[in-house]
Design a binder for these strands. Structure first.
Lengths: 226, 226, 226, 226
DNA sequence: TATGAATGAGGGTTCATTCAT
DNA sequence: CATGAATGAACCCTCATTCAT
């Protein structure tokens, strides 16, 4: 059997086990057995538990980013781009729940703690990937604001926060969809677009919710108030 | 030293270590050293690693829920309630980053996987707490929709998705705020209110973003479009 | 509460726990709880686990030996003495099963191994007690042989073996009687007398079973042969 | 080194250590060192302390039963069978003192106590083996009684007691022989046959020792009395 | 290429034992 | 007289990792 194939089998097994058990609780033994090979072979091909985990993260992160990238046309409006990206994202996480579990369960741990101190391999890649995604979303939001030119000057820091919120919301929906299998990728994407974009729309024309009351040049017609 | 005090010290240390390392990677030795006691004492008071972890989760979950509850007046409008809740939430997570780390890092892992399969103690409490919060948010959203009565019939399932998204967004912002210390609780809450509520407002008067385009009875005046 | 009483309570608890669990598996905690006192008090009164165990052995050994002694009249024939001794023995072991368990379960361990090497306290007392009993039985057998004067010269070594066998048989019957509660002390004693004495009787008049066939001056009338 | 061989080495070491120290006091460390391997290997091959102990018991019980079985011809008279069995038994226990120590020291403890309460693994096998042996001896005695047909009806319960006594006597002699090395298997077997069989002979022709005096149809000629 | 055999290191847990009060 | 509080030491067990073949 060619090496590449064997390696893929091992990674498949590793992603599955890491996803189910977490990094620490996963055992090389279980991975080797699930991959149908002997343990020394795993070490021969992938060097160490850390490296194996790293390879898993890299593969799954690349797959996710590629899937999203492939789903987004760059020559359309920003809102459309976001919608396409979300759809691709939800479709991918639904298709590869183990991969998503690995990425997500590790995205949180070891993020800010001093390198190596966590005991978990830092998985800098996953942090980097998340940041890249956040940056992309940040860019989309800024772009959309410019397109709308209702409110051309959103503070950079505010946009960053919005992007964080949006990505977090997407993650939560992905988990929700994976748990409650009856939610399709399109449904999830639609829900999130309704939630986010519609809100952003109001924001961009100057509407603000500040300290408990609305402030805007022209008082909003349809904001919810008694 | 009285038992209660010692126990608190141990829980403090445990929360810190579990938060930094995760359940599996945390060692009872490190916890004991950080608490300034010997390992057997930890076992004498808290029985086992599982029980210790459980106690941490319970304490931190209660503290968080209490803090939020204390910050929310129930006799005000739903949007105001949400804003108060978010402010209290961000203030609390900023004040007790370790506690939040424990709750959050465990809310993710072992949530949906078959009980016990993860190797981590299921920490059913944290899952329950998250669900309780989601339920509360779901209720607030439905309430607000009723108050606005622009769009009285949001599908129940859609509301559930929105609540998931909102909670996920809040979690992401909490982490972001904890990482980048210069974000205050009020800022974070404001950002999220702008993000969410403003969007919900549009939603409630019938505006929808579906399959990439806007649909509404009366075309929205200020939605972002070229 | 007077010290003597407290000490008796502790010994009662210790005998019970040591009997049920064995020396190693018994825990000072369990003993203290069962005795209704705090652990330091046990140490104050009885010094150490070893000493506590030793005290148990001593007390129970003395009780057993005393009971047997009290049941045996010394001015009767040897067979009668043995019967009385066995009856007293079985009655006592049935009455104090825990005491018997302590004595018996420890009689075997640590008998021949180098002192202290076993990890168990040597319990030299119990070995000594058993040897004393064996010596007494040896004496009785020799006495009876003399009384019967059919066969005045049983080799000393042979008598020793017979005594060992008799004591072993008694121990086995005591355990059997303790397990299957429907066997009374008298029944057990009678069974053993029938088993042993009757055989010894034949022995003493010169009957021998050697290498598979009977040898005797006057061929035995009632020995079992086709 | 092949696995089977290593496993034998480990069992040898374990039997030795368990025999010397008892189950609880034996440490896996000592066993591993004595076997000349590292501790993890012991666990890899034999799984746990319990399983290791169980394997020891099973191996030694089988060896003992096999040795006895091999030494007994089934086509000879019952007394001859018993003599052959005893000889084989004493020869075997003398040859493998450690094996006998494991079997015997565990046969006593945990025999009748509620399962699991002892802390020791119940070693149900050794109890079963002892019962099997008792049953076999019971059968032999009944058979011999039938052959002698002097006293065809020994009460079943009485025969059971006699078998218990005989087995207990054999155990005691085995220990005695192991302690005082100058006693050969044949000597021990002869002593026990003299002790037991000769007595049984009298029993079977109707002689009884009851409540302190002899009762028999024809008063015994050679029973020991002044 | 692939593996059976083997281990150093470390973690959770328990227990006999001792102070200070 | 009696105890709540505390610990050093040891034990069972697991796991990532490496040779020799």
């Amino acid at each position: 059997m060619p090496r590449a194939e064997r390696e893929r089998q091992m990674l498949d097994a590793a992603v599955r086990v890491f996803g189910k058990r977490g990094y620490r609780a996963a055992s090389m033994d279980e991975i080797a057995v699930l991959a149908g090979v002997s343990k020394p072979l795993v070490y021969l091909y992938l060097n160490s538990k850390d490296d194996l985990f790293s390879a898993c993260i890299r593969r799954e992160a690349k797959a996710l980013v590629d899937a999203v990238r492939a789903g987004v046309r760059t020559d359309v409006a920003a809102d459309r781009q976001l919608w396409e990206g979300l759809t691709a994202f939800f479709a991918h996480t639904a298709e590869r729940p183990d991969g998503w579990a690995v990425l997500h369960s590790q995205a949180r741990s070891g993020g800010d703690s001093p390198a190596g101190a966590t005991g978990e391999p830092i998985a800098a890649e996953v942090v980097a990937m998340r940041e890249e995604i956040v940056a992309f979303v940040t860019h989309l939001i800024a772009e959309a604001a410019r397109e709308a030119h209702g409110n051309p000057e959103l503070a950079e820091r505010e946009v960053a926060g919005l992007a964080q919120a949006l990505v977090g919301a997407a993650e939560a929906l992905a988990n929700w969809a994976n748990t409650d299998a009856s939610v399709s990728a399109k449904e999830a994407a639609t829900t999130l677009m309704n939630f986010a974009w519609s809100g952003l729309g109001n924001l961009m024309v100057g509407e603000r919710w500040s300290e408990g009351s609305w402030t805007s040049a022209s008082p909003p017609t349809r904001a919810p108030r008694p």
